[in-house]
Structures are given as C-alpha cells and as structure tokens.
Simulated scan of single mutants.
Amino acid sequence: MMSLTITAEALEKLTYQKYGDSPTIRSYTKWKLFEENSPLKLPTEAKAGEVPVSGHVVFSGSETSFNLPPGVELEEGTLGLSQPEESRILGFHFYALKKAYRLKITKNLLEPLVIVSHLSENAFISHHLSIEVENTNVPIIIYDLSEKGTKSFVVELRLKNAEAEILTVGNHKALSHYLLRATLGEGSKVRAFTIVKGGKMSHHREDYSLEGVGSELILRGIPIGIGSAVDYLTNVLQYGEKSKSETRVNGYSYKNGWVVHRGVAKVFEKAKNSSSEVSSHVVIMDEGSLGVSVPMLEVDTGEIETASHSSSVAQFDEDALFYLRSRGLSREEALSLFVHGIGEALSDHLERLKAKARSNIMTLIEELL
C-alpha cells in the first residue's frame, strides 16, 4: 500500500482532475478557490466549535470524540481505498491529515451510527474515517458541516455479506471536499440517500465499487445550490456478476445557485447478467442560476439484464408556481413549499433511518430558504 503522507514538493506535481476522471474533460469545481485556501496557505489546526448535532463519532476542527455503541470497535488507520497521489485535492487532504480512524462493526445496529464532521474556523482541516461491516446490517447517518475555512472529509467503507443504509446530510457555507468510497463484496447491499447544500464551493463525490456476486446499490441524491455552488459526482463501477445499481439524482439551483451532477455507471466484462441505471435531472428555479447534468453509461459485456441512462436540465414549472400563487402564496412561499415537498418525499427512501433522521432533513431544508 502506498504511503498516506505526502510532501509539499510532491503536491506540486499533482493535478486536480485528469481528462479520464469524469464524463467530460471540463472541470466544474472551482479549484482556484481550493488553491487559494489550501493547507499550504491556511493553518492545519483548529479548535473544536459548537457542533449543532450530537454523534457517536464527532470530528470538530482538529479534535475528535467517540461515544461508540456496543458492537463497534475502534482502531487507527485506513482501509487504503484512497491515496494522496490520486489528485491534488486528495494530496491536500493527506498533507493536512493528523490522524485517521477505523471502525469495525461486528453486530447489527438497531439505531443509526451517527458520524459528524464539522469546521467553524478559517483553517484547512482533514477528517478521515474508515468503516468495515461484515455479516451485519447497519444504518449510518453522516453529517458533513462546514462554516468557515476549507474542510476535507473522506469516508471509506467496505462491506462483506452486509447491508448498509446510509444517509448523508451536507450543509456548507465555505469550501468543502467530501469523498465517500465504498466497496461491496458478495451479497452486500447499500441504500444511500444524499442531500447536500453547496457552500461557496462544495465538491461532493461518491464512488461505489460493486465487486461481489449479487451486490446491489440504490442511490438517491439531491444537490441543492441556493446562492451557492455544488459539484456532485457519483461513480458506480460494477465488477460482480448479477450486480445491480440504480442511481437517481435530482438537483435544484436557486438564487444564482450553481448545481452540477456528473454521474458514471460502468459495467465491466465480467459483470455478466447485471443491471445498471443512472438518471440525472437538474431544475433551475429562477433566472441567473446554473444547472448541468452529465450522466454516462458504459457497458463492456454483451450479457446484460438492463442498462439505461437519462438526463435533463429544465426550468421550474411555472404552471405549478402559478397554481400555488393563485392560492394566495407569494413566490418565495411557493418555492419554499416545493422544496419542502422534495425533502418530505425523499426522506421516505430510508425507512429504518426515517424516525431518527427525518426531522433533521427537514431542519436542513428550512435552513436553505
């Protein structure tokens, strides 16, 4: 395994994005902002701030606290699913990283494991957490919260004959880099629901590798840019026979917001009799906002069950808006009701998490408008 440390000299040789990294050669993340607020220019230490939610694992600034439930074991280190040499942003992440932690889940969890990553000072702070799940079922809630500075959060997840329901809630004001990288072994299933409000610039990426026979992924994502910017990437690679993936992303840009979704689904030659779907739809809710939808499907095997992709970028339905306004609502009230409806409907996707997470989702939605 490569070293997880990197020198400033080695950073200079890295680029943020290679041509083969995404469906298009264009870079949508405003990397210049990260360059201006890198660990080479900002402090890499920060005090813990006032964290708005409690959790079993809480990263805040440079401090970490644990209150783990039974069946969750704590170690130091990583799973090695990400390396500093991959890109300049990961180089920055490992350059600033002080310590990485690793959890091993050995029992079914009846209540969600809550993980919080938080920053409220003008610094470049890296948080890194690896999670191993084997022969168990686990619900996980991840809060990715940034108020100032630049925060990088990497989550590595490995499942073997296991099931995970993952809710990720991102709420950013400044700069944020987030990477969730998961490998699914034989018989493993993941149901993931992500809602992320972009900050000054939010680069949010989720990578799923379906390696085992019969592994399954259902992914639902809602990137929201309201006077803010979010570049949301989803990458699904299918290697296992009879694997299944379904990615559906609905983005919304408002008040000069900036929302991009880039989604890749790739089925390799040995993933015979698999199915794959990726759909990407962005709604531009007012003039002056930006929406970009770039899905890509690539199939290397001729023995495929189903394979499909779809894309759209559309203006908000003015007829629906007119209907609501004719009932006495202002434009702001009508749009607020519409966005609340999004959170209300999609919070039902993770039934086991709903009781714990639903109110938190709606609180986030209320903060957006």
Rank of each mutant, 00 (worst) to 15 (best):
S3E: 15
I6P: 01
T7D: 13
D21L: 03
K32T: 03
N37I: 00
N37D: 02
P39C: 08
A48S: 11
P52F: 03
S54V: 10
S62M: 13
F66R: 03
P70N: 03
G71S: 05
G80W: 15
S82T: 14
E86N: 04
R88K: 15
I89V: 11
F92R: 00
H93S: 00
H93A: 01
L103R: 04
T106V: 13
L119V: 03
V138Q: 11
I140L: 15
I141P: 02
S146C: 15
E165H: 07
T168K: 09
N171S: 13
A182M: 02
E186A: 06
F193N: 07
F193A: 09
K197Q: 13
G199A: 07
Y208Q: 03
G212W: 07
I224F: 14
V230R: 06
Y232T: 03
L233S: 11
T234C: 09
S245K: 04
E246D: 12
W258Q: 04
V267K: 07
A271S: 15
V282H: 08
G288M: 02
L290H: 08
P295T: 07
M296G: 07
V299C: 02
E303S: 06
E303Q: 09
I304P: 01
A307F: 14
S310I: 02
A320P: 00
L324R: 11
S347L: 12
R352N: 05
K354I: 01
S359V: 00
T363K: 11
